[in-house]
């Protein structure tokens, strides 16, 4: 499966981290900045780079947003720059997915209004994380060691295709835990407006084509169920 092609704007500490994570998962990444020094650093770290004046729409168009590029990361350390880039990209390409970071709660609604699909307030999340370490040390430790760590446990979305063996079964009926080493966290029902239904709540939901199973488990188990569910 060819991996999504990603463009990262702004090469700063957050961008370094994002790019490194993404590279470890085999995405195609291009780093864009208008500062040659930063680009040189990025090249030194082994990334593909492009120098571009991102304030200029004509130059942005050259990237092939939405066509060649499916995801845009706007990771500037300045909220105003992020808002400007998000709004420019959104104007050029309505379908591209945009991920950006905010430095303070006030910038979040602005970035969403500008058209970002996902805004992460880094400082807020850091704050929550600190309190989680205090409040729920065990849970935090488990997740750090499994889902977010190096251990072989990840989350996945597995779409239900037409003619899949699970079609027509209810969530209650399918005992994934026995046949696979997987936990079904919930499902997304495309027909009901992309609602997320936790598996603890929607026992009687009948699976059909287009639903997406949200699973947690070891990678090979996820691959196995993907294959088994394919018609």
């Amino acid at each position: 499966m060819p991996k999504t092609s990603i463009v990262i704007f702004g090469y700063h500490s957050t961008a370094v981290e994002v790019a490194t994570y993404l590279r470890s998962r085999d995405y195609r990444i291009t780093i864009i900045d208008d500062n040659e020094e930063k680009l040189a650093k990025a090249r030194y770290a082994g990334f593909e780079t492009a120098r571009l004046d991102y304030r200029d729409d004509a130059e942005l168009k050259k990237l092939g947003l939405g066509r060649d590029v499916e995801v845009v990361f706007s990771l500037f350390p300045d909220d105003a720059e992020n808002v400007f880039l998000v709004i420019s990209v959104r104007a050029l390409a309505p379908d591209v997915r945009i991920f950006t970071i905010a430095h303070g709660a006030l910038a979040v609604p602005k970035l969403i209004a500008a058209g970002a699909n996902k805004v992460v307030d880094t400082y807020e999340i850091t704050g929550h994380r600190i309190v989680d370490i205090l409040d729920r040390p065990i849970i935090t430790e488990i997740l750090d060691n499994t889902l977010f760590g190096q251990a072989d446990l990840s989350m996945a979305e597995v779409p239900m295709m037409a003619g899949s063996i699970l079609n027509g079964h209810t969530v209650k009926d399918i005992q994934l835990g026995n046949d696979y080493n997987l936990i079904l966290v919930g499902i997304v029902d495309r027909e009901m407006g992309d609602n997320f239904i936790y598996s603890t709540e929607g026992h009687n939901h009948r699976l059909d084509e287009g639903d997406v199973l949200v699973l947690i488990g070891p990678n090979e188990e996820i691959d196995r169920i993907r294959q088994d569910l394919a018609p």
Partner: peptide, 17 residues
């Protein structure tokens, strides 16, 4: 920065999950 990086890379493949 690490948390943001992690979230970004987790988000990219499976936004719903």
């Amino acid at each position: 920065f690490e948390i943001a990086g992690l979230m970004a890379s987790e988000y990219i493949g499976k936004p719903v999950a």
